[in-house]
Nucleic acid binder design. Structure first.
Lengths: 381, 381
DNA sequence: TTGAAAGCGGTACCAG
DNA sequence: CTGGTACCGCTTTCAA
């Protein structure tokens, strides 16, 4: 097992110069290199298993075809990994590679990660978070085209485009699903107030009621955290010792783990799901929602689509040179306005993504109906 | 916002040559550069916010201080991300960075990922899988020091060291925990046969019984998959319509989601946990095991420790040059033996990891006792 | 103590 | 159509 072949090795073997090798292997052989030489070069390259040294290439070309992905905890946490999957798909299909660095929620580390990536000449940067949240954008991110996914610039001036799920609509559609099944007494276990996603989903819930001219009972909305135990306790309060006529006929949860807690409570109380109680999840957590007993109806986050939309927009900006959105090379005076508007990063992904405001792309959540929701019990319609 | 400063900019600003800058910033200033110049250089560097271009550095030094991590699906799946977290911790503490590429289970892509990483001059490679499994090692991995985590070379000659959890011992310790609580009729929901982990955990279960001279009832062991629904159905078969004297007093599950299914079955049947039935999980899945109702006793996989042990071993090999284990540079004849024995990659991590065979490091799982296990019910001891 | 120059592996220009 | 050469940013050796 010898060291890797380099261009000069190929050149020697084919009896030509390095430059010829370069031209041919980059498809610029015709018109510059004799057909014969081309063949010999290609053959030699294949035999030596030659591939150009990406490092040297990056140095020479001043671009690396690498997109740096920094995440707050996408890698180590069980959630939202598919954002990176979706982003990586489109990156690869366009000849880029992504390298991921996870900061494990250490805010100091993200600046370091960005600098490291920048020092490695990444052509673009993408920041991905677990769960929707405002982000203190590391300053380095402004030096190359960049995009935020599942998060948004917490500063008043939004310089970077971002891609987020349409949580309001998600909450509304989830509620609508229940409304359409005849439920009107629908409790909402809504996560905690610190998370930006929770209130948005609540807004959607309210909108769904409002659009039908139905009043929402405020005591049906409970901030209940995000975990199984809080879902359980929330449900017990709603259901335990309450007469059938008084209890909600459906419980909508801000995530699937909450829904597990509710299901646990229901079965402890001997309530059948969805016969006596419908349960709606959120997130469509893989290996959870689909295999629950009963399988959870839920609202799927469009993770892959978000990643894909973000990467598509980023690469579009990258490959459309001198169109703004690129790094500020400092050549020429910074005339006028000053603030870069983020270019046109938005890109529709199979119809489910659309640009909603300059630099903001919202992607629709997808309703997944399984077994945990059903018609409102007789007598409560 | 101008383009990044380079060494020559620092040199100009400090009124010295590029070489002086390089020397000083690499700590080799004393004895080569006048104290005064040193100060000026350092000041200039700070003012310009200079950091060397890592690409140029890699090209020049032929080493990048980057470790490439390729995973089958660690990033996109909800599991085992902490292996990478643990690995990254030690890499950073030793001045390396890790870049992660996920193949999303596409066996073709892993070869490509390895080549991409190699072309980018990574100093070492680490392959991480979700769940213990044999691996067809991509040939490129043999070109630099490399290590396998949570997987092992499927070929007969094991050239690469690997770090895996001690599943047999985990199964044994879990079973022991139940045995110590007085249970002897312990059912085992054991995953599926295709996974290497499942049979190992079963082996541990058998060992625990054997060491106490207890016979295991074969009909108590069921291959039940890995998900909530299969756990539920498995438990229903064990418990539904079975008299208290006949049913197992504890169910041990091969993972935590199985345990959720069991808990669901128990509450549907009105069985209290752990009063009438103890439930034991495996994996200590975050946000699941700790928040279940009741909180799950489980066997924690030593994910961070595995990652840390693997990275420690890898870096040790890397920084101990010409000691075998490094890449074969092809200089000098390949004398004798031929097969690289993998060097001494094993490294103890706070006492819980030990080398068990050449190139194999096993890390102990950790028993986590919570609320779902308790003393055997009266009358069944 | 300092600066000039070579070279890491490529690409691209330019003279032959 | 071909080969020589400059250059990307940095480290390192060597001569002044």
């Amino acid at each position: 097992m010898h060291r890797k072949a380099k261009a000069i090795d190929v050149a020697k073997r084919a009896g030509v110069s390095r430059s010829a090798v370069s031209l041919v292997l980059n498809g610029r052989g015709d018109g510059n290199v004799a057909k014969e030489s081309q063949d010999r070069i290609r053959r030699a390259a294949a035999e030596l298993n030659y591939s150009p040294n990406a490092i040297a290439l990056s140095l020479r070309n001043q671009r690396s075809r690498v997109i740096g992905v920094v995440s707050d905890e996408v890698v180590v946490s069980p959630f939202d990994g598919n954002i990176i999957g979706g982003a990586d798909d489109v990156a690869r299909s366009r000849g880029f590679v992504t390298v991921v660095m996870d900061t494990e929620l250490d805010a100091v580390r993200d600046e370091g990660a960005v600098e490291t990536l920048l020092d490695r000449q990444v052509d673009g940067l993408m920041y991905v978070t677990v769960g929707l949240k405002p982000l203190d954008v590391p300053p380095g991110m402004l030096r190359v085209p960049a995009v935020l996914v599942n998060c948004y610039d917490s500063s008043p001036v939004q310089v970077l485009p971002h891609v987020i799920p349409d949580e309001v609509r998600g909450g509304r559609d989830a509620t609508n699903h229940l409304l359409e099944l005849g439920h009107w007494d629908i409790a909402l276990l809504a996560g905690d107030v610190e998370s930006p996603a929770a209130p948005l989903r609540v807004t959607g819930y309210r909108e769904a009621f409002a659009r039908r001219g139905l009043a929402v009972r405020e005591d049906r909305i409970r901030m209940a955290g995000w975990d199984i135990d809080t879902g359980f306790h929330g449900a017990m309060k709603l259901l335990d010792g309450v007469s059938p006529a008084e209890r909600p006929t459906a419980i909508m949860c801000a995530n699937d783990r909450l829904a597990i807690g509710v299901a646990l409570a229901a079965s402890r109380l001997g309530l059948s799901v969805p016969g006596e109680l419908s349960i709606m999840g959120y997130d469509n957590e893989s290996r959870i929602a689909d295999t629950m007993i009963p399988a959870l109806s839920t609202m799927a986050l469009p993770l892959r689509e978000m990643g894909a939309a973000a990467m598509t927009g980023l690469l579009d900006r990258l490959e459309r040179p001198n169109q703004g959105g690129g790094p500020n090379y400092g050549e020429g005076q910074d005339d006028g306005g000053g603030q870069d508007d983020g270019g046109t990063a938005a890109s529709a992904v199979d119809g489910s993504a659309g640009e909603t405001s300059p630099g903001e792309t919202m992607v629709e959540c997808r309703l997944v109906v399984r077994e945990s929701t059903g018609p409102v019990p007789a007598g409560r319609g």
